[in-house]
Amino acid sequence: MVAAAATVVGVPLFIYYSNDSSDSGRSQAKSGEVQASAAAAETERQPKLKVSRVAAYIENGIDGAEPDKEKGPHGPRVDVTFENRAPGPSLITKATLRLREAGQLPGCHVTGGELAVSMNYDFPMPYELPKTPYEKSKDISFLVEDNKVDRLTLTMGPETVGWGPAWYGVVDIVFEHDGTKTAVGPIALVDAGGDGEFYPKGDTWIIENINDPACLDKNAAVADRLAKIPNVTVSKELKSLRDKLTAMGH
């Protein structure tokens, strides 16, 4: 088309279009470079890790230690699945647990004295639940290969467990990796405690010898409030406690 136009209108027009075509080529090349640079910048801005699933439940054992089977489950566990679609592996180097709130869930019956057994947890907290907000960090080394998904778990609880009421907490976890941070939460969970008449078992709770029904109403109100926190992940045991208390009329 340019050659035909040059035949009709002469050289100056051909030269004009020739220069325009050259400028256009440079402009397109520059535009392509800008777009490529913008795409690269956008890719760089994208998080290398994506949290694809969060769950919470009570699990036996901690850091490879053998649990005391007579005592039952120890410590609520947060289970996080990461997805890495970035070109290259992503290394998580630190996890910080932030406890928004915590409290106890009494068994609503007369109990004896306390008998405690020491137990180390990934994120140990004082036996007497700390004032909130409470924060604790731990250096870790967890590598998620590119184009892979992988899971890690964090277990938390008091440094000493044994005879005592179950406790609940609302936590956020911040993972540091590749010069950035990824937050997970809020997560609402409960611990089994050491009460032999008020504890989770399988998909339900054992609740026995109640002498204070109003106390169960308070526990039900706590479970209901926690479950209604916006965007919350509710642990398996907290959900089953809420269902159990509802079924009991509380």
Rank of each mutant, 00 (worst) to 15 (best):
A39H: 01
F14E: 09
P73Q: 03
V51Q: 01
P186S: 02
A214D: 15
A166S: 14
D150S: 15
M156N: 03
K244R: 13
K244N: 05
D217C: 04
L49N: 00
A86S: 15
I92Y: 08
L49F: 04
Q28V: 08
W163Y: 08
N209A: 06
P133Q: 11
V184I: 10
L13C: 08
M119P: 00
T132N: 11
I92F: 03
N231V: 00
A166R: 07
L115C: 01
Q104M: 12
S27C: 06
P12L: 11
D203S: 13
V144S: 11
K181R: 09
K244E: 11
S52A: 07
A183C: 01
M156F: 12
P165F: 08
F14M: 10
L245V: 05
G194S: 06
F123R: 01
N120M: 07
T182W: 04
E145A: 15
A166D: 05
Y16Q: 05
V144Q: 09
R45Q: 14
L238N: 11
N147D: 09
L189C: 00
V171I: 14
S90K: 08
V174A: 06
V2W: 11
H250K: 15
L99V: 15
S118R: 14
V2H: 05
I92T: 10
D178E: 15
S21V: 10
P67C: 05
A183R: 12
G32P: 00
T160P: 01
V51M: 01
K131I: 10
I210W: 10
P126R: 12
N209R: 11
L226A: 08
I92D: 07
E176P: 00
R98I: 15
A247N: 02
S22E: 12
E208G: 00
D139C: 02
E176A: 14
G88R: 15
V232G: 12
V34M: 10
G179N: 10
S137F: 12
K50Y: 07
V110E: 08
A41R: 09
G75T: 04
S235Q: 03
G113I: 05
K181P: 09
V110M: 07
D224G: 09
K71G: 00
G194Y: 11
D217V: 06
